[in-house]
Nucleic acid binder design. Sequence first.
DNA 1: ACTGAAAATAATCTATC
DNA 2: GATAGATTATTTTCAGT
Lengths: 174, 174
Amino acid sequence: MIDEVDKKILNILQKNARISNAEIARRVGMAPSGILERMRKLERKGIIQKYEVRLNPKALGLVLTVLIMVKTEERVGSVEIGYELAKISEVQEVYFTAGEYNYLLKARVSDTDALTELLRKFGAIPGVKDTRTTLVLNDIKESLALDLDRVDVARAGGKKGARKGNSQESEDIS
Amino acid sequence: MIDEVDKKILNILQKNARISNAEIARRVGMAPSGILERMRKLERKGIIQKYEVRLNPKALGLVLTVLIMVKTEERVGSVEIGYELAKISEVQEVYFTAGEYNYLLKARVSDTDALTELLRKFGAIPGVKDTRTTLVLNDIKESLALDLDRVDVARAGGKKGARKGNSQESEDIS
DNA sequence: ACTGAAAATAATCTATC
DNA sequence: GATAGATTATTTTCAGT
């Protein structure tokens, strides 16, 4: 259950996740202790999953973004290979999809040699049958933001659809 | 230019972007003021782009992840329509790609009705010729983390590839 | 669920090396 | 670049409502 106050807090955090508690309190018009309690509850419910930093891949030399579709031979519905693919550090996103290809991945690499190396890693995973690489010419939008005006405040709850099938490693969320 | 100390700082932030400065300082073995200065420099250089919160879309009722390929009729190399697509709030990612389709998008919606509405919005943009929607059955991995061991510390610089072509709205980064 | 007060920490600035 | 020290601000806990 999230209410209008939670929505305000989450919208503030979506703009800048490193903003101080005290500043959120000021903007929401509540005591900092109350904000702190709400944030912890949102974390406990799994609505807040993580605070992340977005680094500029190009500024770090990872100038190529690639989208790779992967076809595998697994028993229907199995995502074993997906978890193997998710372990590869160049791979930022792995989706198990309905359709001809089983997975779609996004990866960042420094150059075509690094891309070749990455594809070689895929090929080394048993069951990977085919890959189809698409070069990204322009990362036009990349955002974690959700439009909270689209979420039904009444039915938004903490139980369903939590961390299942997420291979991110954990660490203290605060 | 990032060095080994920056790398340590960034790796700590990649695990939890809301960690205190003082705690980073403790882990790195430096004075907090020095860490603060380095973080500000990383922000100024555009290496740190944003601090984001990852909310659980499913916990908020946005249970469907969809990948949509969009074919457009634009003059070659133009990404005008990409920016239009990026304005739509359900759309979290927009990539301009080499290949048969011009764009690949990722979007979150609550149900198939919301998906229909989203596709209708695409159709309303002049120049959008065709869309191909793929349903995501499992979001296996979604992460912003970059493997800093893959970045060449020597050549990683602040000049190239900064915010160009990014339609995220800005706000005080701290 | 929230507030307000108190104690503990942290952020930030200046001066200095 | 970094630190140490001073000041201001924030975080956190908790008693009270």
